[in-house]
């Protein structure tokens, strides 16, 4: 077993373990911290796939932006565990688990039937920023414009939605 395979198995096991931690934690803050480690392990896997720029973007966008946003919301609305209603639809987790096993079996069957493909060892040396940047800003410039519009609309929508409604005492008397 090569060094690369051992490294992949270790990082993959850590990734799966933290994913399980996100789902099973009782306290929302613990879930968010598990999510942070999970995103970091995925960034390491991106580096092993020759996608260095996307690994950096993963750390910046997900670990630096999204997890921090989730932690801010947890601080705003509190993180008391709420799944304490005894006997309230207690079969739901088992139904979810059964559906998940069925889905995993289907996906694993599809992957195992895939014919083995040989990979060029120099494949996608273009994960480095300069090649990916030329690719994005020359052939896919429309996608960049659309993403900009999407982010602007999401920003305005989030501002509008999370605005505190005007109460009676602030009205002009």
């Amino acid at each position: 077993m090569s060094f690369e395979m051992i490294f992949f198995i270790l990082v993959g096991a850590l990734s799966v373990g933290t994913a399980v931690g996100v789902v099973t934690s009782r306290i929302a803050v613990h879930s968010a911290l598990f999510l942070l480690v999970h995103f970091a392990t995925l960034a390491i896997l991106y580096v092993t796939l020759n996608a260095q720029f996307l690994a950096a973007a993963q750390i910046i966008v997900y670990a630096g932006g999204i997890v921090i946003l989730i932690l801010f919301v947890i601080m705003l609305i509190g993180s008391a565990p709420l799944e304490t209603r005894a006997g309230y639809r207690s079969w739901v987790p088992y139904a979810g688990l059964a559906l998940g096993v069925v889905m995993l079996a289907g996906m694993a069957l599809t992957v195992l039937q895939m014919p083995p493909a040989t990979i060029n060892p120099a494949a996608n040396e273009g994960g480095v920023p300069i090649v990916l940047g030329v690719e994005i800003y020359s052939q896919n410039i429309l996608l960049v414009e659309l993403a900009a519009v999407l982010l602007l609309v999401a920003l305005l929508g989030a501002l509008l939605l999370a605005r505190r409604p005007k109460t009676e005492e602030t009205s002009i008397s």
Partner: peptide, 28 residues
């Protein structure tokens, strides 16, 4: 090989789907 990454991705996707189906906290 690519298949190993696909299996890992399928496992993580399934864990996420099970979490959506079984947890009741909207944040999670």
């Amino acid at each position: 090989p690519t298949g190993y990454y696909l299996i890992l991705s399928a496992i993580i996707f399934t864990i996420g789907a099970v979490g959506v189906l079984s947890r009741r906290n909207a944040l999670i």
